[in-house]
Design a protein around this nucleic acid. Structure first.
Lengths: 229, 229
DNA sequence: GAGTCTTAGTGTACAGTACACACTAATAGG
DNA sequence: CCTATTAGTGTGTACTGTACACTAAGACTC
Protein backbone atom coordinates (compact mmCIF):
# COMPACT_ATOMS: atom_id res chain seq x y z
CA UNK A 1 0.00 0.00 0.00
CA UNK A 2 1.99 2.97 -1.26
CA UNK A 3 0.02 5.80 0.39
CA UNK A 4 -0.92 6.47 3.92
CA UNK A 5 -4.18 8.30 3.59
CA UNK A 6 -6.10 9.62 6.53
CA UNK A 7 -9.57 9.31 4.94
CA UNK A 8 -11.18 6.58 2.89
CA UNK A 9 -10.34 7.35 -0.72
CA UNK A 10 -12.85 8.21 -3.38
CA UNK A 11 -12.81 5.51 -6.07
CA UNK A 12 -11.92 6.39 -9.65
CA UNK A 13 -13.93 5.25 -12.63
CA UNK A 14 -14.12 6.09 -16.32
CA UNK A 15 -17.30 6.45 -18.34
CA UNK A 16 -17.58 6.72 -22.11
CA UNK A 17 -20.15 8.63 -24.10
CA UNK A 18 -20.04 6.84 -27.45
CA UNK A 19 -21.50 8.73 -30.39
CA UNK A 20 -22.47 7.00 -33.59
CA UNK A 21 -24.59 7.82 -36.56
CA UNK A 22 -27.42 5.84 -38.10
CA UNK A 23 -29.45 7.07 -41.06
CA UNK A 24 -28.19 10.58 -40.36
CA UNK A 25 -29.38 10.48 -36.75
CA UNK A 26 -26.95 10.94 -33.87
CA UNK A 27 -26.91 7.85 -31.67
CA UNK A 28 -25.51 6.88 -28.29
CA UNK A 29 -24.30 3.49 -27.15
CA UNK A 30 -25.78 2.41 -23.82
CA UNK A 31 -25.34 -0.64 -21.61
CA UNK A 32 -28.00 -2.40 -19.62
CA UNK A 33 -26.87 -2.78 -16.01
CA UNK A 34 -27.20 -6.27 -14.55
CA UNK A 35 -26.25 -5.58 -10.97
CA UNK A 36 -27.21 -2.96 -8.39
CA UNK A 37 -27.19 -0.08 -7.98
CA UNK A 38 -29.55 0.85 -10.83
CA UNK A 39 -29.88 -2.78 -11.93
CA UNK A 40 -31.92 -2.93 -15.12
CA UNK A 41 -31.20 0.72 -15.88
CA UNK A 42 -29.32 1.92 -18.91
CA UNK A 43 -25.89 3.40 -18.33
CA UNK A 44 -22.75 4.55 -20.07
CA UNK A 45 -20.08 1.93 -20.65
CA UNK A 46 -17.36 2.34 -18.05
CA UNK A 47 -15.82 0.98 -14.89
CA UNK A 48 -13.06 1.22 -12.34
CA UNK A 49 -9.60 2.43 -13.21
CA UNK A 50 -6.97 -0.15 -12.42
CA UNK A 51 -3.88 0.67 -10.45
CA UNK A 52 -1.02 1.59 -12.81
CA UNK A 53 -3.24 2.17 -15.81
CA UNK A 54 -3.55 5.48 -17.63
CA UNK A 55 -7.01 7.01 -17.75
CA UNK A 56 -7.10 6.74 -21.54
CA UNK A 57 -6.16 3.08 -21.32
CA UNK A 58 -8.86 2.45 -18.75
CA UNK A 59 -11.45 4.09 -20.98
CA UNK A 60 -10.37 2.04 -24.00
CA UNK A 61 -10.27 -1.16 -21.97
CA UNK A 62 -13.75 -0.69 -20.55
CA UNK A 63 -15.07 0.28 -23.95
CA UNK A 64 -13.74 -2.89 -25.52
CA UNK A 65 -14.84 -5.11 -22.62
CA UNK A 66 -18.37 -3.80 -22.64
CA UNK A 67 -19.03 -3.05 -26.31
CA UNK A 68 -16.29 -4.70 -28.35
CA UNK A 69 -15.28 -1.36 -29.86
CA UNK A 70 -11.57 -0.74 -30.48
CA UNK A 71 -9.43 2.00 -31.96
CA UNK A 72 -12.08 4.66 -31.96
CA UNK A 73 -11.66 8.41 -31.60
CA UNK A 74 -11.57 8.99 -27.84
CA UNK A 75 -11.03 12.18 -25.88
CA UNK A 76 -11.33 13.19 -22.26
CA UNK A 77 -14.47 15.19 -21.56
CA UNK A 78 -14.81 16.22 -17.92
CA UNK A 79 -14.49 14.75 -14.47
CA UNK A 80 -17.55 14.33 -12.31
CA UNK A 81 -16.98 13.87 -8.60
CA UNK A 82 -20.00 14.90 -6.59
CA UNK A 83 -20.19 12.74 -3.47
CA UNK A 84 -23.80 11.76 -4.06
CA UNK A 85 -23.42 10.51 -7.60
CA UNK A 86 -22.93 6.86 -6.64
CA UNK A 87 -25.04 5.46 -3.79
CA UNK A 88 -22.27 2.97 -2.89
CA UNK A 89 -19.89 5.76 -1.90
CA UNK A 90 -17.82 8.60 -3.22
CA UNK A 91 -16.78 7.88 -6.80
CA UNK A 92 -14.91 10.20 -9.11
CA UNK A 93 -15.68 9.52 -12.74
CA UNK A 94 -13.42 10.71 -15.52
CA UNK A 95 -15.76 10.94 -18.49
CA UNK A 96 -14.66 10.41 -22.08
CA UNK A 97 -16.46 10.81 -25.36
CA UNK A 98 -15.89 8.64 -28.39
CA UNK A 99 -16.84 8.87 -32.05
CA UNK A 100 -17.47 5.66 -33.94
CA UNK A 101 -17.48 5.17 -37.70
CA UNK A 102 -20.73 4.11 -39.19
CA UNK A 103 -19.11 1.14 -40.93
CA UNK A 104 -17.79 -0.10 -37.59
CA UNK A 105 -21.04 0.17 -35.67
CA UNK A 106 -20.89 -3.03 -33.74
CA UNK A 107 -24.40 -4.41 -34.04
CA UNK A 108 -25.90 -5.97 -30.94
CA UNK A 109 -25.26 -9.43 -32.30
CA UNK A 110 -21.52 -8.88 -32.26
CA UNK A 111 -21.47 -8.17 -28.54
CA UNK A 112 -23.68 -11.03 -27.53
CA UNK A 113 -22.62 -11.21 -23.91
CA UNK A 114 -23.44 -7.58 -23.16
CA UNK A 115 -26.56 -5.58 -23.80
CA UNK A 116 -25.08 -2.69 -25.75
CA UNK A 117 -27.73 -0.82 -27.70
CA UNK A 118 -27.75 2.30 -29.81
CA UNK A 119 -30.25 4.97 -28.78
CA UNK A 120 -31.08 8.16 -30.61
CA UNK A 121 -29.69 11.10 -28.63
CA UNK A 122 -33.09 12.74 -28.89
CA UNK A 123 -34.91 9.84 -27.20
CA UNK A 124 -32.81 8.48 -24.37
CA UNK A 125 -34.21 6.19 -21.70
CA UNK A 126 -33.84 6.92 -17.99
CA UNK A 127 -30.23 6.57 -17.06
CA UNK A 128 -28.28 5.39 -14.03
CA UNK A 129 -26.21 7.66 -11.78
CA UNK A 130 -25.63 11.15 -13.21
CA UNK A 131 -25.13 9.77 -16.69
CA UNK A 132 -27.76 12.04 -18.18
CA UNK A 133 -25.70 15.00 -17.05
CA UNK A 134 -22.53 13.50 -18.48
CA UNK A 135 -24.27 13.02 -21.81
CA UNK A 136 -25.50 16.60 -21.87
CA UNK A 137 -21.96 17.77 -21.25
CA UNK A 138 -20.72 15.54 -24.06
CA UNK A 139 -23.30 16.79 -26.54
CA UNK A 140 -22.41 20.39 -25.74
CA UNK A 141 -18.73 19.62 -26.11
CA UNK A 142 -19.27 17.89 -29.43
CA UNK A 143 -21.27 20.82 -30.76
CA UNK A 144 -18.57 23.23 -29.69
CA UNK A 145 -15.71 21.12 -30.98
CA UNK A 146 -17.22 20.56 -34.39
CA UNK A 147 -17.06 24.26 -35.12
CA UNK A 148 -13.30 24.47 -35.05
CA UNK A 149 -12.03 20.91 -35.41
CA UNK A 150 -12.83 18.51 -38.21
CA UNK A 151 -13.84 15.53 -36.07
CA UNK A 152 -17.07 14.72 -37.83
CA UNK A 153 -15.20 12.51 -40.26
CA UNK A 154 -14.82 10.11 -37.36
CA UNK A 155 -18.52 9.35 -37.55
CA UNK A 156 -18.52 8.34 -41.22
CA UNK A 157 -17.08 5.45 -43.19
CA UNK A 158 -13.66 6.11 -44.63
CA UNK A 159 -15.19 7.11 -47.95
CA UNK A 160 -18.19 9.37 -47.89
CA UNK A 161 -20.07 11.89 -49.99
CA UNK A 162 -20.30 15.57 -49.22
CA UNK A 163 -24.02 15.23 -48.65
CA UNK A 164 -23.37 12.59 -46.00
CA UNK A 165 -20.81 14.80 -44.32
CA UNK A 166 -23.20 17.73 -44.35
CA UNK A 167 -25.77 15.46 -42.74
CA UNK A 168 -23.40 14.75 -39.87
CA UNK A 169 -22.85 18.43 -39.23
CA UNK A 170 -26.56 19.00 -39.32
CA UNK A 171 -27.22 16.12 -36.95
CA UNK A 172 -24.63 17.34 -34.47
CA UNK A 173 -25.46 21.03 -34.67
CA UNK A 174 -29.19 20.40 -34.87
CA UNK A 175 -29.76 22.88 -37.66
CA UNK A 176 -29.87 22.92 -41.44
CA UNK A 177 -26.92 24.17 -43.46
CA UNK A 178 -26.83 25.60 -46.96
CA UNK A 179 -25.52 23.05 -49.44
CA UNK A 180 -23.43 25.34 -51.58
CA UNK A 181 -21.90 27.25 -48.71
CA UNK A 182 -21.13 24.06 -46.84
CA UNK A 183 -19.32 22.57 -49.82
CA UNK A 184 -17.35 25.74 -50.40
CA UNK A 185 -16.16 25.94 -46.81
CA UNK A 186 -15.41 22.29 -46.28
CA UNK A 187 -13.46 22.00 -49.54
CA UNK A 188 -11.61 25.25 -48.80
CA UNK A 189 -10.15 23.61 -45.69
CA UNK A 190 -8.24 21.38 -48.06
CA UNK A 191 -8.62 18.30 -45.87
CA UNK A 192 -10.74 16.29 -48.27
CA UNK A 193 -9.25 14.19 -51.04
CA UNK A 194 -11.40 13.07 -53.94
CA UNK A 195 -11.25 9.35 -54.48
CA UNK A 196 -11.50 7.92 -57.97
CA UNK A 197 -14.75 6.28 -57.04
CA UNK A 198 -18.33 7.36 -57.14
CA UNK A 199 -21.05 5.92 -55.00
CA UNK A 200 -22.78 3.01 -56.71
CA UNK A 201 -26.35 1.85 -56.74
CA UNK A 202 -28.20 5.08 -56.22
CA UNK A 203 -31.21 5.95 -58.33
CA UNK A 204 -29.86 9.35 -59.30
CA UNK A 205 -26.64 11.02 -60.31
CA UNK A 206 -23.78 9.15 -58.62
CA UNK A 207 -22.04 11.33 -56.04
CA UNK A 208 -18.29 11.69 -55.71
CA UNK A 209 -16.68 9.88 -52.78
CA UNK A 210 -14.15 11.75 -50.66
CA UNK A 211 -11.82 10.76 -47.88
CA UNK A 212 -10.28 12.70 -45.02
CA UNK A 213 -6.61 13.55 -45.50
CA UNK A 214 -5.24 12.92 -42.00
CA UNK A 215 -1.63 13.63 -42.96
CA UNK A 216 -2.51 17.06 -44.32
CA UNK A 217 -4.56 17.78 -41.22
CA UNK A 218 -1.65 16.96 -38.96
CA UNK A 219 0.69 19.13 -41.00
CA UNK A 220 -1.62 22.14 -41.09
CA UNK A 221 -2.46 21.80 -37.40
CA UNK A 222 1.22 22.00 -36.53
CA UNK A 223 1.39 25.22 -38.51
CA UNK A 224 -1.35 26.59 -36.28
CA UNK A 225 -4.18 26.57 -38.78
CA UNK A 226 -7.77 26.92 -37.67
CA UNK A 227 -10.53 24.84 -39.16
CA UNK A 228 -13.59 26.85 -38.38
CA UNK A 229 -16.70 25.88 -40.18
CA UNK B 1 -15.74 0.88 3.69
CA UNK B 2 -18.48 1.22 1.09
CA UNK B 3 -16.75 -0.46 -1.87
CA UNK B 4 -15.18 -3.80 -2.29
CA UNK B 5 -12.47 -3.17 -4.80
CA UNK B 6 -10.20 -5.86 -6.08
CA UNK B 7 -7.18 -3.63 -6.75
CA UNK B 8 -5.58 -0.91 -4.68
CA UNK B 9 -7.29 2.30 -5.70
CA UNK B 10 -5.60 5.22 -7.36
CA UNK B 11 -5.71 8.25 -5.06
CA UNK B 12 -7.49 11.44 -6.13
CA UNK B 13 -5.99 14.89 -5.80
CA UNK B 14 -6.76 18.36 -7.10
CA UNK B 15 -4.18 20.86 -8.36
CA UNK B 16 -4.79 24.53 -9.13
CA UNK B 17 -3.11 26.62 -11.78
CA UNK B 18 -3.60 30.14 -10.41
CA UNK B 19 -3.19 32.96 -12.91
CA UNK B 20 -2.62 36.52 -11.80
CA UNK B 21 -1.38 39.69 -13.40
CA UNK B 22 1.38 42.00 -12.28
CA UNK B 23 2.44 45.05 -14.26
CA UNK B 24 0.75 43.60 -17.30
CA UNK B 25 2.67 40.33 -17.03
CA UNK B 26 0.87 37.01 -16.62
CA UNK B 27 1.88 35.36 -13.35
CA UNK B 28 1.44 31.97 -11.73
CA UNK B 29 1.16 31.18 -8.04
CA UNK B 30 3.50 28.39 -6.91
CA UNK B 31 4.13 26.67 -3.62
CA UNK B 32 7.44 25.50 -2.24
CA UNK B 33 7.21 21.88 -1.20
CA UNK B 34 8.50 21.06 2.29
CA UNK B 35 8.23 17.30 2.23
CA UNK B 36 9.22 14.57 -0.20
CA UNK B 37 8.76 13.70 -2.94
CA UNK B 38 10.21 16.74 -4.70
CA UNK B 39 10.99 18.47 -1.37
CA UNK B 40 12.31 21.95 -2.04
CA UNK B 41 10.75 21.98 -5.51
CA UNK B 42 8.05 24.36 -6.64
CA UNK B 43 4.63 22.93 -7.26
CA UNK B 44 1.01 23.86 -7.89
CA UNK B 45 -1.19 24.34 -4.85
CA UNK B 46 -3.30 21.24 -4.35
CA UNK B 47 -3.85 18.10 -2.34
CA UNK B 48 -6.01 15.08 -1.69
CA UNK B 49 -9.74 15.10 -2.21
CA UNK B 50 -11.62 14.24 0.95
CA UNK B 51 -14.32 11.63 1.06
CA UNK B 52 -17.72 13.24 0.47
CA UNK B 53 -16.34 16.48 -0.90
CA UNK B 54 -17.04 17.78 -4.39
CA UNK B 55 -14.04 18.29 -6.64
CA UNK B 56 -14.72 22.02 -6.84
CA UNK B 57 -14.88 22.21 -3.06
CA UNK B 58 -11.63 20.32 -2.73
CA UNK B 59 -9.92 22.71 -5.14
CA UNK B 60 -11.23 25.75 -3.28
CA UNK B 61 -10.30 24.29 0.08
CA UNK B 62 -6.75 23.47 -0.96
CA UNK B 63 -6.38 26.86 -2.57
CA UNK B 64 -7.40 28.62 0.59
CA UNK B 65 -5.31 26.39 2.84
CA UNK B 66 -2.18 26.85 0.81
CA UNK B 67 -2.47 30.39 -0.48
CA UNK B 68 -5.21 32.15 1.48
CA UNK B 69 -7.14 32.90 -1.71
CA UNK B 70 -10.95 32.70 -1.59
CA UNK B 71 -13.83 33.31 -3.96
CA UNK B 72 -11.80 33.37 -7.11
CA UNK B 73 -12.83 32.34 -10.61
CA UNK B 74 -12.20 28.60 -10.72
CA UNK B 75 -12.90 26.08 -13.47
CA UNK B 76 -12.01 22.48 -14.08
CA UNK B 77 -9.21 22.07 -16.61
CA UNK B 78 -8.31 18.44 -17.23
CA UNK B 79 -7.61 15.26 -15.33
CA UNK B 80 -4.12 13.79 -15.32
CA UNK B 81 -3.78 10.19 -14.30
CA UNK B 82 -0.64 8.64 -15.74
CA UNK B 83 0.59 5.99 -13.32
CA UNK B 84 4.11 7.40 -13.21
CA UNK B 85 3.22 10.95 -12.35
CA UNK B 86 3.63 10.51 -8.59
CA UNK B 87 6.52 8.35 -7.34
CA UNK B 88 4.53 7.35 -4.25
CA UNK B 89 1.94 5.51 -6.30
CA UNK B 90 -0.86 5.95 -8.76
CA UNK B 91 -2.50 9.34 -8.28
CA UNK B 92 -5.21 10.86 -10.41
CA UNK B 93 -5.12 14.65 -10.32
CA UNK B 94 -8.11 16.73 -11.32
CA UNK B 95 -6.53 20.01 -12.41
CA UNK B 96 -8.26 23.37 -12.08
CA UNK B 97 -7.32 26.82 -13.23
CA UNK B 98 -8.12 30.00 -11.35
CA UNK B 99 -8.05 33.68 -12.23
CA UNK B 100 -7.23 36.14 -9.47
CA UNK B 101 -7.97 39.86 -9.44
CA UNK B 102 -4.96 42.10 -9.29
CA UNK B 103 -6.29 43.94 -6.24
CA UNK B 104 -6.60 40.64 -4.39
CA UNK B 105 -3.12 39.35 -5.12
CA UNK B 106 -2.28 37.93 -1.75
CA UNK B 107 1.25 39.12 -1.15
CA UNK B 108 3.66 36.62 0.33
CA UNK B 109 3.44 38.32 3.69
CA UNK B 110 -0.25 37.51 3.99
CA UNK B 111 0.35 33.79 3.69
CA UNK B 112 3.22 33.70 6.11
CA UNK B 113 3.06 30.01 6.92
CA UNK B 114 3.29 28.86 3.32
CA UNK B 115 5.76 29.78 0.63
CA UNK B 116 3.38 30.92 -2.07
CA UNK B 117 5.15 33.03 -4.68
CA UNK B 118 4.12 34.59 -7.97
CA UNK B 119 6.24 33.65 -10.96
CA UNK B 120 6.06 35.08 -14.44
CA UNK B 121 4.61 32.43 -16.76
CA UNK B 122 7.49 33.05 -19.11
CA UNK B 123 10.15 32.21 -16.49
CA UNK B 124 9.00 29.29 -14.40
CA UNK B 125 11.34 27.31 -12.15
CA UNK B 126 11.66 23.54 -12.33
CA UNK B 127 8.45 22.00 -11.12
CA UNK B 128 7.45 18.89 -9.18
CA UNK B 129 5.51 15.98 -10.69
CA UNK B 130 4.01 16.68 -14.12
CA UNK B 131 3.05 20.19 -13.07
CA UNK B 132 4.82 21.77 -16.03
CA UNK B 133 2.54 19.82 -18.32
CA UNK B 134 -0.52 20.84 -16.35
CA UNK B 135 0.52 24.47 -16.65
CA UNK B 136 1.03 24.20 -20.40
CA UNK B 137 -2.45 22.77 -20.71
CA UNK B 138 -3.84 25.60 -18.60
CA UNK B 139 -2.13 28.30 -20.66
CA UNK B 140 -3.48 26.79 -23.86
CA UNK B 141 -6.96 26.58 -22.38
CA UNK B 142 -6.83 30.18 -21.19
CA UNK B 143 -5.75 31.38 -24.62
CA UNK B 144 -8.56 29.46 -26.23
CA UNK B 145 -11.17 30.50 -23.73
CA UNK B 146 -10.37 34.18 -23.89
CA UNK B 147 -11.39 34.28 -27.53
CA UNK B 148 -14.99 33.46 -26.91
CA UNK B 149 -15.63 34.14 -23.24
CA UNK B 150 -15.02 37.38 -21.38
CA UNK B 151 -13.04 35.96 -18.49
CA UNK B 152 -10.17 38.39 -18.61
CA UNK B 153 -12.08 40.75 -16.34
CA UNK B 154 -11.36 38.25 -13.59
CA UNK B 155 -7.71 39.24 -13.70
CA UNK B 156 -8.32 42.95 -13.14
CA UNK B 157 -9.56 45.06 -10.23
CA UNK B 158 -13.30 45.70 -10.30
CA UNK B 159 -12.72 49.06 -11.98
CA UNK B 160 -10.28 49.22 -14.82
CA UNK B 161 -9.41 51.20 -17.92
CA UNK B 162 -9.74 49.91 -21.44
CA UNK B 163 -5.99 50.14 -21.86
CA UNK B 164 -5.51 47.86 -18.87
CA UNK B 165 -8.02 45.38 -20.26
CA UNK B 166 -6.30 45.40 -23.61
CA UNK B 167 -3.05 44.70 -21.80
CA UNK B 168 -4.56 41.57 -20.25
CA UNK B 169 -5.65 40.27 -23.62
CA UNK B 170 -2.21 40.98 -25.01
CA UNK B 171 -0.51 39.25 -22.08
CA UNK B 172 -2.68 36.17 -22.41
CA UNK B 173 -2.63 35.93 -26.19
CA UNK B 174 1.03 36.92 -26.42
CA UNK B 175 0.48 39.36 -29.26
CA UNK B 176 -0.24 43.05 -29.77
CA UNK B 177 -3.76 44.25 -30.57
CA UNK B 178 -4.90 47.39 -32.36
CA UNK B 179 -6.22 49.94 -29.90
CA UNK B 180 -9.16 51.26 -31.90
CA UNK B 181 -10.36 47.89 -33.08
CA UNK B 182 -10.05 46.44 -29.59
CA UNK B 183 -12.14 49.24 -28.09
CA UNK B 184 -14.77 48.92 -30.78
CA UNK B 185 -15.16 45.19 -30.30
CA UNK B 186 -15.06 45.11 -26.56
CA UNK B 187 -17.58 47.93 -26.21
CA UNK B 188 -19.81 46.37 -28.86
CA UNK B 189 -20.20 43.33 -26.60
CA UNK B 190 -22.13 45.58 -24.27
CA UNK B 191 -20.69 44.04 -21.13
CA UNK B 192 -18.81 47.09 -19.92
CA UNK B 193 -20.43 49.82 -17.87
CA UNK B 194 -18.78 53.21 -17.60
CA UNK B 195 -18.33 54.30 -14.03
CA UNK B 196 -18.56 57.95 -13.09
CA UNK B 197 -14.94 57.92 -12.11
CA UNK B 198 -11.74 58.53 -13.96
CA UNK B 199 -8.41 57.19 -12.92
CA UNK B 200 -6.56 59.67 -10.68
CA UNK B 201 -2.92 60.56 -10.34
CA UNK B 202 -1.68 59.85 -13.84
CA UNK B 203 0.56 62.36 -15.60
CA UNK B 204 -1.59 62.46 -18.70
CA UNK B 205 -5.21 62.57 -19.73
CA UNK B 206 -7.22 60.71 -17.07
CA UNK B 207 -8.74 57.54 -18.48
CA UNK B 208 -12.32 56.43 -17.98
CA UNK B 209 -12.88 53.59 -15.54
CA UNK B 210 -15.19 50.74 -16.55
CA UNK B 211 -16.63 47.77 -14.76
CA UNK B 212 -17.85 44.42 -15.96
CA UNK B 213 -21.63 44.05 -16.04
CA UNK B 214 -22.04 40.51 -14.73
CA UNK B 215 -25.85 40.65 -14.73
CA UNK B 216 -25.97 41.59 -18.39
CA UNK B 217 -23.46 38.87 -19.19
CA UNK B 218 -25.61 36.24 -17.50
CA UNK B 219 -28.69 37.42 -19.34
CA UNK B 220 -27.07 37.48 -22.78
CA UNK B 221 -25.40 34.12 -22.20
CA UNK B 222 -28.77 32.54 -21.49
CA UNK B 223 -29.98 33.90 -24.81
CA UNK B 224 -27.12 32.07 -26.47
CA UNK B 225 -24.96 35.05 -27.36
CA UNK B 226 -21.37 34.60 -28.37
CA UNK B 227 -18.65 36.87 -27.13
CA UNK B 228 -15.93 36.38 -29.65
CA UNK B 229 -13.17 38.88 -29.60
C1' DG C 1 -35.19 4.40 -75.45
C1' DA C 2 -38.11 8.17 -73.80
C1' DG C 3 -39.71 9.95 -69.90
C1' DT C 4 -39.63 10.57 -64.99
C1' DC C 5 -37.75 10.82 -60.55
C1' DT C 6 -34.27 12.01 -57.50
C1' DT C 7 -30.15 13.82 -55.72
C1' DA C 8 -25.45 15.93 -57.28
C1' DG C 9 -23.24 19.71 -58.28
C1' DT C 10 -22.37 24.62 -59.31
C1' DG C 11 -21.88 30.72 -59.02
C1' DT C 12 -23.15 35.33 -57.89
C1' DA C 13 -24.58 39.48 -55.49
C1' DC C 14 -25.04 41.73 -51.17
C1' DA C 15 -24.25 42.72 -46.45
C1' DG C 16 -21.60 42.64 -42.61
C1' DT C 17 -17.24 42.07 -40.37
C1' DA C 18 -12.20 42.36 -39.86
C1' DC C 19 -8.36 45.07 -40.24
C1' DA C 20 -5.10 48.70 -41.20
C1' DC C 21 -4.05 53.16 -40.09
C1' DA C 22 -2.92 58.76 -37.61
C1' DC C 23 -4.32 62.54 -35.38
C1' DT C 24 -6.42 65.56 -31.48
C1' DA C 25 -7.64 65.77 -26.35
C1' DA C 26 -6.62 66.00 -21.68
C1' DT C 27 -3.91 66.02 -17.60
C1' DA C 28 0.44 66.30 -14.47
C1' DG C 29 4.72 67.99 -13.64
C1' DG C 30 8.47 70.98 -14.28
C1' DC D 1 3.02 77.83 -20.16
C1' DC D 2 5.44 74.35 -22.12
C1' DT D 3 6.40 69.48 -22.42
C1' DA D 4 5.59 64.76 -21.97
C1' DT D 5 2.52 61.10 -21.97
C1' DT D 6 -1.37 58.36 -22.63
C1' DA D 7 -6.62 58.64 -23.82
C1' DG D 8 -9.69 58.59 -27.14
C1' DT D 9 -11.75 58.65 -31.78
C1' DG D 10 -13.42 57.31 -37.62
C1' DT D 11 -12.91 55.79 -42.25
C1' DG D 12 -11.86 53.09 -46.30
C1' DT D 13 -10.85 48.59 -48.06
C1' DA D 14 -10.57 43.68 -48.35
C1' DC D 15 -12.58 39.75 -47.06
C1' DT D 16 -15.89 36.61 -45.34
C1' DG D 17 -20.61 34.94 -44.47
C1' DT D 18 -24.94 34.17 -46.38
C1' DA D 19 -28.91 33.90 -49.21
C1' DC D 20 -30.54 31.95 -53.17
C1' DA D 21 -32.16 28.48 -58.09
C1' DC D 22 -31.00 26.07 -61.82
C1' DT D 23 -28.69 22.26 -64.79
C1' DA D 24 -26.41 17.46 -64.74
C1' DA D 25 -26.43 12.67 -64.32
C1' DG D 26 -27.86 8.20 -63.25
C1' DA D 27 -31.61 4.46 -62.36
C1' DC D 28 -35.88 2.81 -63.03
C1' DT D 29 -40.39 2.28 -65.44
C1' DC D 30 -43.14 1.63 -69.16
Amino acid sequence: MPFTYEYPRPAVTVDCVVFGLDQGVLQLLLIKRNSPPFAGCWALPGGFVDQNETLDAAARRELEEETGLREVFLEQLFTFGDPGRDPRGHTVSVAYYALVRQDRHVPQAATDTSDAVWYSVAKLPKLAFDHQRIISTAVARLQGKVRYQPINFELLPRKFTLTELQGVYEAVLERALDKRNFRKKILAMGLLAETKEKQQGVAHRAPQLYQFDAAKYKKLTKQGFNFEL
